[in-house]
Design a binder for these strands. Structure first.
Lengths: 228, 228, 228, 228
DNA sequence: AATGAATGAGAATTCATTCAT
DNA sequence: GATGAATGAATTCTCATTCAT
């Protein structure tokens, strides 16, 4: 099958100068990936974009894949951090409240760098370390599972894992599509409402009263979304 | 930015033999794409896999992109055909009935060649003609729009396009994930039920009685699914 | 330890044109190896020296090692051929007669392309297929063994294999050194005599009468040598 | 042709610490050369193996060639030292006695670091200073010449230089082969006997009585060998 | 003196594509 | 029409060497 190249970083930069170089390289990787696409993103081009010699690039990254893997890792941790921060505020035990905060957090996460995310998901071959892009959704599933377990009684589904499987695949792709379609994020409040609505309809035995308001933004939910 | 190569087929083969050659090449492209991934899939390898000389390949396809574009086209039309066939049978005007048939049709469509679909969606750079892979979901949206317009009164949403946007992105990604996770398709009946349930919850003012059955397959829906 | 690269030839040339290309490449490899040494002999330089594009080179040889391996093989078979031809003539069962013919044959073999032989032995890393340069001496040992077994009674040594081990390592290196020191081969007749003398002294219970003639060429032996 | 790089050591280290560094580097060179082969032995790898920064390496050695040249020098002087020590003991004017001591000394010399010797002889390109590896055999020739001149009358050969040429190329290669084939040196005593026997047969008008004992170790000779 | 970051020429190798037969 | 030989730009990656700290 396919060979999996080495992706573990090569040398830990000790001096500040080297740290800067590494960062410049990773940043340049993102830029080139976005602007040129995965297969046009040659290591030379990336080095050039980073204002660094090709030798320096290989001093820190043993292969092109290692480069992208580092970027994936960074991007993922950014998304995770954004999501976590968004979730910190709201600790209401109510599913509806939480759902909208969660969805709003997700939207923020997917706003971190949508164009990079796109390339990482749609062009990068998912081999070895590069499979890690999928991890965000896995973390999401874990998160959802642990939260929803405590609310089993308000949920229609007997098979919670199954319900989570559906949501964890349905929600991100809706958000991703919406984010891609609306780069400025003008409509994010409504997006949050719509997705939240979808989630609540799907999960709850008795969905909340705003059930029929789709098309008009429900005030509270969008207030939360706007703060993200 | 990125150059978009010529992708229109070079010459329409008139003779049966040539037709066979073209088919062999496209089939080989699919095979190599699946086995090697996009960037390892060289035209020489494809020609070899097709049992054809590289010269012959270029006789019919002016570039690698044209080759993959042809494959995308073929794959898309197969999926569309499978979906259409699935929809032909059921003409009940009832949304619940139709939804499950539709979902079952979609599942069948995504079963056409999941591994190829994966490569086409997750690896192939989406430039020029290769964007066409997104067309399936666009066709889906059109289909849904025209069907649901007639049922506005049974639907919660005032902004139908918006609701369709959500569904059209949510449903395929759930199905794709489920199909990838269950290559044999043993659980397809349940998948159809679950997704249908999700759709109906989301769309209908008064979702049907089986609302709370998730985790147990609703007989009727799975009966339909089984016939696909 | 050290990675062993692929060395089996890539594609069998079918057309005459390709055959010529392959030959040109191997010839160029020898030339560049001799002129530049192993580590300066880049595949690009070789391709250029062969008047062929680098792509053509890799069409037929999957790696630099494969290239050198092919050369080794060719060189070895040339040497073997020359030796065999030299041995064909003389079928006398007498050890002295045979020895000088054998030695003369060896000298001719080591004259095939001494500079190439030198690089192949002294610079090329002996990994994988490239170990084969050592095979000539192994073949020699086999040859000597089968011949000398029939003459056990005229030989001083009870442990024949041991005696052969010594000779098989002693003789070629003397010849090689002499060949390198005398590129024109003016002194080959004397070389044959000297080495033959050495062999006979070493092997025979009663070495022949010319034992003390070293320094003056014994007529018969040199006559044989001259015909090679 | 080939450029010959600077090989003279850059600065004579005066301090003990620097001396230690230099030694560590040369030792590391040997290690890496043996383990990785010449072309995989990069200066960075060597510096790392020496536990020294690449900058320090270049402080003492102006080039890779200088590094290897220093190693060659060291290795050669070790071999010479071992040989000299072995010769010191025996000062008998008898050729047979001396021959076996000499051969035993040679065996010890070639046992100094056979794997390094192998790389140095068989892989390192013999340019510039690196030709020095051949010097050992040249010193040997000188040694043999000066010793044997005094024994002309017991020797069959009128052309002594010629005889020495043969021996000086024959003997080391036999010893090298035997040493490589028997890394533990279990058979060294016999090796010494066999080679000595070969030498005496070749040189002497009346070879000693043990002429026919090959295959059984002659007691005295092996006694000497055992003491080395 | 020492460190290790940085350099960039150059090596091996691939692959889309062209062209002679 | 078909074949497959040939092309060479482009890519990944290494390594001897220099230089700032």
């Amino acid at each position: 099958m396919r060979a999996i190249p080495v992706t573990s970083p090569r040398r830990r930069p000790r001096q500040a100068r080297a740290q800067a170089t590494v960062e410049a390289i990773v940043k340049a990787t993102a830029r080139v990936l976005i602007e040129e696409g995965y297969d046009r993103a040659s290591t030379n081009r990336i080095a050039q974009a980073a204002g660094v010699s090709i030798g320096s690039l290989y001093q820190y990254f043993p292969s092109k894949e290692a480069l992208v893997a580092a970027l994936v890792e960074e991007h993922l941790s950014k998304m995770t951090r954004v999501l976590s921060q968004a979730l910190e505020g709201a600790k209401s035990p109510s599913l509806p409240d939480n759902a909208s905060v969660m969805v709003a957090g997700l939207v923020s996460a997917y706003r971190v760098d949508p164009r990079l995310h796109h390339v990482l998901c749609q062009e990068v071959p998912k081999i070895g370390e590069l499979r890690k892009i999928y991890e965000f959704e896995e973390r999401l599933a874990t998160l959802a599972r642990s939260y929803l377990r405590g609310l089993q009684h308000t949920i229609r589904h007997t098979d919670l894992d199954r319900a989570i499987f559906l949501l964890v695949h349905a929600i991100p792709s809706v958000i991703r599509a919406a984010v891609d379609a609306d780069p400025e994020g003008n409509d994010d409040a409504r997006l949050v409402d719509d997705v939240t609505d979808m989630v609540l309809c799907y999960l709850m035995v008795d969905p909340p009263a705003h059930r029929s308001t789709n098309g008009q933004t429900a005030p509270m939910a969008s207030a939360v979304a706007a703060t993200v």
